[in-house]
Design a protein around this nucleic acid. Structure first.
Lengths: 213, 213
DNA sequence: CGTTGTTCTGAACCGTGGTTCACTCCTTGT
DNA sequence: ACAAGGAGTGAACCACGGTTCAGAACAACG
C-alpha cells in the first residue's frame, strides 16, 4: 500500500527498465535463471511484482533479453579477441579458446546459465543463436586457417562444432554449480590441454603457434 | 469405477511393474521424458494413475529407473563393441565412436532424451553416471593407446572429456527433436568426419587404422 | 453367500510461480 | 483545492501435473 518511488515519472522509465534488467542479470549471475523469479527481480528494485509487467510482456521475454544482453557481451568480447584477418589462424583460434574458456572459468555461474542451465524454450532459442555465433566464429577461423595451409583439409563446419563441444565438455566439470572453485593452476592446465587438443585435432603443424601467452 | 484387471494378483506384480516401465520407456523413446506423465504411462497399460504409485514411489524414481535401464543397455552395447584389451586402441576407439554415434542417429529421440533433454535432478543424476561411463570407457582406451604408443602423450581424462564433447556436439544438430531425418550418406559423412577429428586430436599416426569399416 | 484382505480407481488436493486487475498513491493541470 | 490520469501495488487467480486416499471392485476362503 505504500507508494515509494522517489520522484520518477516515465522520463525515468528506461532507467527503471534497465534496473529490472540489471537486477535479473545479477540474480542470474549469482544463482542462475531459475532463481530469477519475477518476485525476486522486483524485490531487488524495491518494485512490486505487478510493475514488472508494465515494462515487460512476460518473464520469458525479460529473461530472454537478459540472456541476449549477457550473451552478446560475451560474443563481442570474443569477436574482438579473434579479430584481425591478417593474424595467423592458430593464434586467433588460441585467442578464442582463451577468451571462451577463461571467461567461463571467471564467471562460472553465469557461464553455466548461458551454456547449460535448463531454461524455457524462449530462452533456449536465444542460447541457440549464442552457441551458433561461437561456432561460426570458430568456423571462420578454421576456414582462414585452411586457406592459409595452417590446418589439414577437413569440413570446417563439423570441425567447428566438434571444437566447441570439446571445449564445453572439458569445461562443464569446472563450472557445474556445486563444483569447487578450481585453482588457477588447474585452470591454466586445463586451458592448455584444451588448446593442445584442438590444435592437434585441426592438424596444426606447430602446436606452439599462438602459444600459451 | 470399472475394475478390469484380467486375473492378475501380486503374482503378476513384477509383470505389471515391467509393463509400466516399458510403457514409460516407449513414451520416452517417442516423445521424451516430458511426455512420460504419470497419466500417460498409466493409460498405456490400461491402468489408473493411482496404481502406478503402488509400484513406484514417485514419478521421478520411475523415470530414473527408465533412464538407468535404457542407459545401461547403451553402455553395455558400447562396452561389448570396444572390448578386447588385445585389440589396437585406435580400432577400439573407432568402435566406440561408431557405436555411440551410430546408435544415437538410429534412435534419435531416445538419444536426445538420454543426452540432452532437460530432466528433473533425480534423472539428471542418472545422466551423470551415464556420461561418466562413456567417458571412462573412452579414457581407458586412450590410456591403452598411450601405453601402446598409438597416441601422443596427453592427459587421458581431459582428452576423453573433449572427445565425448566433440562427438556430442557434432551429433546434437542431427538428433535435435525437430530436425529432419538425415540421409544415410550424411550420417556416414558426419561419422567419418568425427572419427578423423578424434584421431587427429589424439595424435594417432595412421588415421586409417580401425578405419571406416 | 458373507466376510476379509487386497488391488484398483480417479477425483480432489497441493505446491509452485507466472499473470492479472481492482485499488491506492502520487503528480500534473486548472 | 480538486479532478484527472498515470504508475505502482500485491493479493488473488490460474495452469499444470504429481500425489493422495476413501471407496469400489474383485478374489479367496469358510
Amino acid at each position: 500500500m505504500p507508494y515509494r518511488p522517489t520522484a520518477l515519472t516515465r522520463k525515468n522509465a528506461e532507467d527503471k527498465r534497465d534496473g529490472l534488467l540489471r537486477a535479473a542479470r545479477s540474480l542470474v549471475a549469482t544463482d542462475g535463471f531459475k532463481a530469477a523469479t519475477v518476485a525476486a527481480i522486483a524485490a531487488r528494485c524495491q518494485a512490486s511484482v505487478g510493475s514488472v509487467y508494465s515494462y515487460f510482456d512476460s518473464r520469458d521475454w525479460l529473461l530472454a533479453e537478459v540472456f541476449r544482453s549477457a550473451a552478446s557481451h560475451e560474443i563481442d568480447t570474443a569477436r574482438v579477441a579473434v579479430s584481425g584477418t591478417g593474424r595467423p589462424a592458430p593464434e586467433r583460434l588460441n585467442a578464442l579458446i582463451r577468451t571462451f574458456a577463461g571467461r567461463a572459468l571467471q564467471g562460472r555461474r553465469m557461464a553455466w546459465a548461458l551454456l547449460f542451465e535448463p531454461v524455457s524454450p524462449a530462452v533456449e532459442a536465444e542460447r541457440l543463436v549464442y552457441r551458433r555465433s561461437y561456432t561460426e566464429l570458430s568456423e571462420q577461423i578454421i576456414r582462414d586457417g585452411l586457406a592459409g595451409g595452417d590446418f589439414v583439409p577437413q569440413d570446417p563446419g563439423l570441425a567447428a562444432s566438434a571444437i566447441m563441444g570439446a571445449i564445453s565438455e572439458s569445461l562443464v566439470g569446472w563450472i557445474r554449480p556445486d563444483s569447487p572453485e578450481p585453482t588457477s593452476e588447474a585452470q591454466a592446465g586445463a586451458l592448455d590441454g584444451i588448446r593442445l587438443f584442438c590444435f592437434r585435432a585441426l592438424g596444426a603443424q606447430d602446436l606452439t603457434i599462438g602459444g600459451t601467452r
